[in-house]
Amino acid sequence: MTPHRRLHIVHTEASCGWGGQEIRILEESRGLIARGHRVTIVAPASSNIFKRAAQWGVPAVALPLTKKRLGPLLALRRWLAVHAHDIDVLNTHSSTDSWLAALAVRMLPGAARLPIVRTRHISAPVHASAANRWLYARVARHVVTTGEQLRRELIDNLGVASEAATSIPTGIDTTRFAPGDKLAARAQVGLAADAFWVGIVATLRSWKGHSYLLEALAALPDSIRLVIVGDGPQREALRQKVAALGLEARVHFAGEQKDVAPWLRALDVFALPSYANEGVSQSVMQAMASGLPVVTTAVGSMRDIIDNRHTGLLVTPKDATALADAIAALHADPAAAQLLGERAHAFALERCGLSRMLDRMESIFMSAARAR
């Protein structure tokens, strides 16, 4: 897409964590900078996205956006008052920064009021209150969700106009995430060449379902092993569960990895048994682009990319038995697993590419800026 003019897009992000939401913001920002736009991230100095922005080549400004309080509101309002003339659109992401930005913009003189695009990343319910209807349906010029189910919920529950809400799943670099030499990848990351490896790439949060994946593994043959890529608040609890289930020899904690592509290429099966808060999982799309058979759940908008038994397998959330059965079926039928991976790869190439996301986000930002 060729832009009509160069934009300055400012992202606000209150989250101090690290996961798919923060990675999407940085990936999208880097992609739009490469297309000639200016992008600035405004986030707390203690946040992971602020600390890592320079590594992604994205300028960042530190503001104390961690709480819905008067101090952070005034700090954001002061910054916007100075820079509003040089900003075309404001893209908010988490609840706290979205509220702070909405109120700060309303405190600015009319000519300085910036158009707001609200991106909703997760499927956690939004209470249908008058305040939320104001935030989503009146303040936001446009609402972007990471999946169609999330979009429908905002339209149905908060009164967001259908033409003002768009589902744009996170784009994946399909040149970086692609099928490759499995044995070479295992040698690179240090996994046993002769095992059947199931893998999960996710922040270690309870709702990602790692605990159920461990229970499933305990019911599977010893030749099936699990590699857990990622870090987070559930690390020690998961290590304790591994010990309690006697799985120390079969579970490898890889920790957080800067580049997960070789870890994906080393796997036989990818599993993400989330039971809450997903939009469309980036790691699932990365696994699909890598040509892996995927086992996951229909939480959030996962059905946007997983057609059960065609581009992946869907199991009931919080059901370790169903999860074990799905993995066992793929282990027992390599041809079926390969076909599932091939279909997943073809879908990812057609629907999940990074340029597709950038085209659509660029168009929304252009439209919002023109309407200012």
Rank of each mutant, 00 (worst) to 15 (best):
D181F: 04
G353C: 10
V227L: 03
A140M: 08
G255W: 05
L80N: 00
T66H: 15
L214R: 09
R141C: 10
K258C: 06
F347P: 02
R225K: 15
V269E: 03
T96S: 01
Y275M: 03
A187H: 12
H8L: 13
A337M: 06
I172Q: 03
L135Y: 09
S15E: 11
W263I: 07
S47T: 10
A164W: 02
F196T: 10
R265S: 00
D194M: 07
I224F: 01
S355L: 14
P179A: 08
G171Q: 02
L154P: 11
A335I: 04
P115K: 11
H121P: 11
L63P: 09
L183V: 07
Q234H: 12
K241L: 14
P317L: 13
I87R: 09
G279Q: 03
E362H: 05
R69K: 12
S301L: 02
A131K: 15
H8P: 00
I122S: 15
H210D: 02
A298C: 00
G255L: 02
D231Y: 00
S206G: 07
S46P: 03
Y136H: 14
A45S: 13
H252R: 13
R176M: 02
A336P: 02
L135D: 10
N132D: 03
A346C: 13
D181N: 15
R35F: 03
K67G: 06
K318W: 08
L103Q: 12
D97Y: 04
T166A: 09
S98V: 09
A346I: 15
C352G: 11
K241C: 04
A254L: 05
